[in-house]
Amino acid sequence: MAILAKAPPARLAELLPDLAAHAVLRAPETGAVMVRGRTGGTGAPFNLGEMTVTRCSVRLDCGAVGHAWVQGRDKAHATRAALADSLMQTDAAPRIRAMVLEVLAAEAKAARTARAGKAAATRVDFFTLVRGED
C-alpha cells in the first residue's frame, strides 16, 4: 500500500492501465490528515499541520477487497491504488508484484539515491589550516 500511495499517479496509470471490474465500497473521498511531530523530535506529539489525502475502497467480483489512502487529491490515483491492493489478494498477486510494485519500488529507490547523491556532493570535508597554539 505504501508503494502504491507514494507512486507518481501518472506512472501508476502507465503500469496499470486497465481497471478491473469492481464495486465501489467507498467512493474516492478527499480529506485531510493532521500531520504530527514530536517536541524536540522525541517528546510529546503536537499537531504540525494537515495534508490532503484521498481514500478509496473497492471490491472485485471475486470478493477481494482493496483499500487505498494516498497523499494528494487525485481520485484516479486512489481508485487505481485500491484496485491494485485488491488484486494483491487474488491469483494476480505475483503478476502485480512483478509488473507494478517492484517497478515502482525500484524507481522510488533510484530517485531517492539520486537525491542522496546530490546531498552527498555538498557534504563538507574539513581540513585544518592552522591550529591555535596552546
Partner: peptide
C-alpha cells in the same frame, strides 16, 4: 467482515 464495508452513503455529499 465484508458486511461492515457496505451500508454507508452511496452518494455522500
Amino acid at each position: 467482515q465484508a458486511q461492515s464495508l457496505t451500508g454507508g452513503f452511496a452518494d455522500a455529499p
